[in-house]
Write a protein that binds this DNA or RNA. Structure first.
Lengths: 241, 241
DNA sequence: ACGCGATGCTCTAATATTGAACAGATCGTA
DNA sequence: TACGATCTGTTCAATATTAGAGCATCGCGT
């Protein structure tokens, strides 16, 4: 082997009995997700820094499970079953939250969503868009950005001990969000977009937040936050958390 | 090893140089997706029919990549990053289709979605719900069912050579859909729900369909199909496929 | 208190994986 | 047309990786 794989993601140095083959297979998925276009096996092998036959076997295995597909030219792309797998992520939360999110989205005319903490990132899990969605492309399920940025990120951080806040977090603003019970943002993650979010703490689950994004509104942020808190309470009640 | 892993999914017997470790790791994800609640490592080991220490290492590796998370009690569940990975599935198709789907959903007041062929299943990739969504829970992204069932499934099959149709496909109805250019269903996948779908053929990509689901409508199916065809044409034009 | 069941980790034998080399297929160009 | 370049897909021996047993530890309920 040319070089042993470093800690896959960027993590600390744990005693980590990690499986090399599995790790490489997952990295294939990550590479494909980052790439805009389908990749050839050779390209995958290069980016993975492994021999082609290794990449070939990994791809074949992923294909067997439907996680990647291959077009007529042999190019590799992510498969639809990956989306099916992802539907199982916190699917009780998704199921219980959906009606609440829909209600908020329709009442306020804004995109309403749930984001959860994933290491140092904030990833959108479910989102519901209202009728006249302008910023449709934003806040789609699966989108992620550093948790230090934006209202939902700071709302999530209010659930995390300050000692664990990332270095680039604005401690003053997060502290303010803790006091107020909600967080606001403007022009942070997405240009000229505003957002309001409240924390959503669920028992035995990663820190989460429910929020809305909008261009402008006749409502004060506090009013939006009150509605969101109500939705969060409803979700929490449904899950008994 | 007690027994060599059989063909992972159920596939034909290919020369299959498959990676055992990667296959098992993926099966962990599948098991977690099927399970409603978080699982302990022991439970995973049993369902996987491997030694505990194997499951342990697999889980540890998946955790390193953020694909699974562990709560305080050590229970394993799917991680949010899986949702982020899935966002990359056909994400150019998702991006281009979203405005079209939104337009149709709002015009017709129905849930509008795109489904793609995945082996013998039909999986929903993106869906947009209208304002007064009643059957919100249905047709969420990631949901799947046999391709032989329902309007979107038959619409997809019109793009597939008859020789490849699954045994349980209703050849007469699919043939009818080919002639008409769209497929309809009622009470098939979801009780008392109707659906209309048209095929969406994209160059070098899996067969797909764009459709709507509804309880009842003042429009004839043909009218709905015409609107869907227009949307499909728009999507096809955007992707140059 | 005690046992039960879970996690976390170490160790060696066994084996699954690695990587090179080869055979075909396909495409574009001289 | 023939050539070269670039892929895919397969085989095989050497070895790095993994499999599985065993043990220490922690938390919890009877």
């Amino acid at each position: 082997m040319t070089a042993t794989d470093p800690s896959p993601t960027s993590g600390a140095s744990r005693p980590s009995p990690a499986s090399q083959t599995l790790s490489r297979g997952i990295r294939v998925l990550e590479i494909l997700s980052d790439a805009l276009a389908p990749l050839t096996i050779d390209e995958i092998a290069v980016r993975l820094d492994v021999h082609r036959s290794v990449a070939y076997r990994l791809v074949r295995t992923l294909e067997d499970h439907g996680l990647v597909t291959r077009d007529a030219a042999g190019r590799v792309d992510l498969g639809a079953r990956l989306a099916a797998l992802a539907a199982g992520v916190a699917h009780d939360l998704q199921a219980e939250a959906l009606p609440e999110l829909t209600a908020v989205a329709n009442e306020l005319g804004m995109t309403c969503f749930i984001a959860v903490l994933d290491r140092d990132e904030c990833v959108t899990l479910v989102s519901v868009e209202p009728r006249h969605a302008i910023a449709s492309v934003a806040q789609r399920p699966g989108s992620r950005h550093p948790v230090a940025l934006g209202a939902p990120g700071r709302a999530i951080l209010t659930l995390v001990p300050p000692a664990l806040w990332p270095a680039d977090a604005d401690a003053v603003r997060v502290t303010g969000a803790v006091a107020r019970g909600y967080a606001v943002s403007h022009d942070e993650v997405i240009p000229s977009l505003r957002s309001v979010a409240v924390p959503l703490a669920l028992r035995g689950r990663a820190a989460a937040a429910v929020g809305v994004v909008y261009l402008q509104s006749e409502h004060e942020p506090g009013v939006l936050a009150a509605r969101l808190t109500q939705a969060a309470d409803g979700i929490r009640a449904s899950l008994g958390g």
